[in-house]
Design a protein around this nucleic acid. Structure first.
Lengths: 214, 214
DNA sequence: ATCTGCTATTGAGAATTGTCAAGATTGTGT
DNA sequence: ACACAATCTTGACAATTCTCAATAGCAGAT
């Protein structure tokens, strides 16, 4: 399953070039040149390439709101080379800052570098260790017996400890977009996890969803 | 508990300047100019600033081994500006690549960006801190217990301190367009917030609405 | 002084979540 | 093809928490 890149750019020619190149490198690309559609696409992306100057709007002002939707790495693309501008961009939540003109190869390297944490071989949280490729989980190196759904659910939480996932988000991420069991199903599986690994705390956030405690 | 930075650098003068500056910014620094000691210090660090050219050694060749000890963000510092060199650095596992001469402020921003966990975006107002993705709120790092509605309401105010929201605006933003309880409901929740966080001032603007004071 | 809008408090009802057990589905071995 | 086991889904019910409207009293504006 190849990572999904979201490209937010007002210059369609530049975007087209980018998309062609990135697709040739095996990335699925979504393109957006309407700001009001960014929010919807953001949810489905794994990494965002964001043009800082979007017509007359400075996109870093919108960045915090978007990151609140889903915290994923953002590479800002810009013509501004001023250092204070870079600092502002990074402090707004961007992972990286690339000035135009840029080399495709460098962009690619930075995409790889920022996507890397997502396809790590090993996820750890406290004494909990997950090996996603082997689909094995351990508590203090003692193997845990988890079903497929339980593992997927736990993996999602471990990748972002402390983050609150709504039931809808969990259904999307774990069960997939096409299939919608009732939300009771989520609860039941959370219950299972809590039973199987009493050492970890999965908090309910009333009215919102669940969170793995930090 | 301040983050620990490991500085691997052969130029002691440069390192001293860096360390002085970074310590003044609240980071604990460890310095290393013997490569065989890097491994030991690596374990204890939260982030590494690595000079690419260490005497006659290209440190990116050692990077994968070090990262195997512990996967932490590495910022490479270098005089090499060539793009292929940057790509090589990032592909070796570095999170970022900074070319000399560099600005202290930009370095700082990149340290912050790389130390910040993916989901740890913050909205701050005075001693009030909100983590939107975690839906957690703190006053002076003391956690506040807020319900969903209270959190949403507070988040709205914190994102625009000083701005006056009318009751209608609050109903739209927090409760959603479709649902209209009486406006008394807003008052009740404002009251609740004031009770739970006496330190912040939510002003009533008579005849208009409410505002978070600056 | 009067009126309008704000504060404060309460309890009923609504909504959400925890828990369990039964039924449906899938996978496995014979 | 069959039986058996493991897993997933669902609905029911209880327990809990939250919301919101109604009320009364208060304060500022004109």
């Amino acid at each position: 399953m190849s990572p999904i890149l979201l490209i937010v750019e007002d210059d369609i020619d530049l975007a087209n070039g980018l998309i062609t190149f990135l697709q040739s490198q095996g990335y699925a690309c979504k393109f957006c040149n309407y700001l009001d559609k960014v929010g919807g696409l953001w949810k489905k992306a794994d990494l965002v390439i964001l043009d800082r100057q979007f017509y007359d709007i400075d996109t870093i002002n919108l960045l915090p709101d978007w990151l609140a939707i889903k915290a994923i790495p953002v590479l800002i693309l810009t013509a501004k080379v001023d250092i204070n501008e870079r600092v502002a961009g990074l402090d707004a939540g961007a992972r990286d800052y690339i000035t135009k003109p840029f080399s495709y190869n460098e962009l690619l390297a930075r995409i790889r570098a920022n996507l890397r944490p997502f396809n790590q071989l090993e996820w750890c949280y406290q004494s909990l260790k997950l090996l996603p490729t082997q689909r094995k989980a351990f508590w203090n190196d003692i193997p845990l017996v988890l079903t497929k759904t339980e593992f997927d659910l736990l993996a999602l939480f471990v990748r972002a400890p402390g983050r609150v996932y709504t039931r809808d988000e969990l259904l999307n991420e774990v069960w997939g977009y096409q299939y919608y069991p009732t939300t009771r199903t989520v609860d039941t599986h959370i219950l299972q996890l809590r039973k199987k690994i009493p050492e970890i705390t999965i908090e309910s956030v009333r009215g919102v969803g669940y969170r793995l405690c930090m």
